[in-house]
Amino acid sequence: MGLTGGVRVRSVTLAVLLGLLLAAPAAADPVPAPVPACTITDPRLAELSGLVADDQHWYAIDDGGTSAKVWVLGKDCQVQDSITGAVDPYDVEDLARGADGTFWLSDTGDNDEDRDTIALISLTPAGDTALYRLTYPDGKHDAEALLLDRTGVPYVITKTPLGTAGVYRPTGPLASPGPTPLEKVASLRLTSTGTPGGPLPGAVGSVLVTGAATSADGTVIAVRTYTDAYLFPVSDGDIVKALSATPVRVPLPNEPQGEAIAFQPDGSLVSGSETGRDDATQSMNVVAGAAAVAAPKPAPSRTAEPKSASGVSAAPEKKEGLPVIPAVAVTVAVIGAIYLLFRSSRRSRTR
């Protein structure tokens, strides 16, 4: 879903101003560089939006859609099969998988913020489906990211142009068809990074949350933007606490509209992008050992402090967190304008 010519020119102008206004991008943590694994050429996945993985397959969804459909790909990026359920979604944006093998489709896209409810759709490998409607406690939001904790509780993360995404979870067990109320449990604060990629020039794409994933053992979660992935260590299964920690940042490889992210069982991280065109191709990229880099570390011993080479006690190295974007009125206006232009350029969604 590209930008039109007029919108592109206006976006470039605004992005230049934005680059002058935002603080210098934070440095990335040392992680292995992403490596292309294979190339998706199937036009049915031109709008790749959500991804999960097991040892033999990748499971993917296309943005939007008129059915609850998961595509089954080999590790060579070739489509081998599909799993389809009898539900007509509004705008599916992300994919997760429970411990029992059930797929969870995040029908949470709302570019125009006009939906009274969003939904999660469960889809078994046999094609059985159920619809679970949800309501926000504080108005309407666009959201493209879904996490499951290790007990199967879902977390929806919103997509906002100002760098502070809302994190929501159900107030109780999901009801079908519902709706089940959501509660806001956290805010995730992002700032610009300077990593190239995304459909918007400049820094805006690096603060828009477009996908999320949980490692197989539940000890690491990933939240991605168009340009970067952030890896958070999860202790005792506490997603909310994890999102308040300092993450490991992984710059992704200049993806045109990166929205898909997943962990493989071995802890490597996989990312993929929409192409927006039926005749375009896009690489799937793998970051080896990503989960191990970000996994929770043992608590330091209280009986001894780390020593420097000179024998002097050394304070732990201070890492940069994810600061709030400076609350300068003109910056907010520029970011909001760029994002509104991008949203207006996406195709309208109809059931």
Results as ranks from 00 to 15, higher is better:
D55W: 15
Y226I: 13
D107R: 00
V209P: 11
L340E: 15
P89C: 09
E144N: 10
L134M: 00
Y90Q: 08
R343C: 13
A290S: 14
P173E: 02
A143M: 03
M1Q: 13
G336A: 15
D112V: 05
P296Y: 06
G85A: 10
E183L: 06
S187I: 01
Q78C: 00
G152F: 09
A295K: 02
T66A: 08
N254D: 10
T275S: 07
I61V: 14
G276N: 12
L190S: 09
D279C: 09
P296R: 02
A222R: 09
V72P: 05
L188I: 13
R249T: 08
P296L: 05
G6K: 13
A280Y: 02
S268Y: 01
T303Y: 15
L252R: 05
G258P: 05
A213T: 06
S215P: 15
S176A: 03
R115M: 03
T13I: 11
E47W: 04
M1H: 14
P43T: 02
G202D: 14
A143N: 03
I40G: 05
L341G: 08
K307H: 10
G202I: 11
K159A: 08
L208D: 08
G258W: 04
V79D: 11
G6H: 12
D62Q: 14
Y90H: 07
V12N: 10
E144P: 12
D116N: 02
R349G: 08
L73H: 08
D142A: 10
K297T: 02
V248W: 09
I325H: 04
T180N: 01
P247L: 00
G50F: 15
G197M: 06
G198C: 07
L182N: 01
D76K: 01
S344C: 11
K140W: 03
V185I: 03
V9H: 12
T4M: 08
P306K: 09
K319L: 13
V240N: 01
L17E: 10
L21Y: 04
P25M: 06
V334S: 06
L208N: 11
S283G: 13
V167N: 05
A96C: 11
N254P: 02
H141Q: 03
L162V: 10
Q257N: 15
R351N: 13
A245F: 12
C77W: 01
R150C: 03
D54I: 11
D279H: 09
P265C: 06
A229D: 02
P298Y: 06
G98V: 13
A280V: 01
A46K: 15
T135W: 03
C77N: 00
S206R: 03
G272E: 00
Y339V: 07
A294H: 03
Q264P: 11
D110S: 05
L131S: 01
A126D: 09
S122L: 09
Q78W: 00
L105F: 08
A314L: 07
K297I: 01
L190A: 05
P265G: 04
T191Y: 04
L147K: 02
T193L: 04
V9F: 15
D110Y: 12
G311T: 00
D128W: 08
V234I: 09
E305K: 14
P298N: 04
T84E: 03
R10H: 04
P316N: 03
T195C: 07
A329M: 12
P179M: 02
A290T: 13
D138P: 10
T171R: 01
A333M: 08
A46T: 12
D54S: 12
T164F: 05
L17V: 12
G6L: 15
E305G: 08
A290M: 13
T171Q: 01
L231S: 12
A24T: 14
K241E: 10
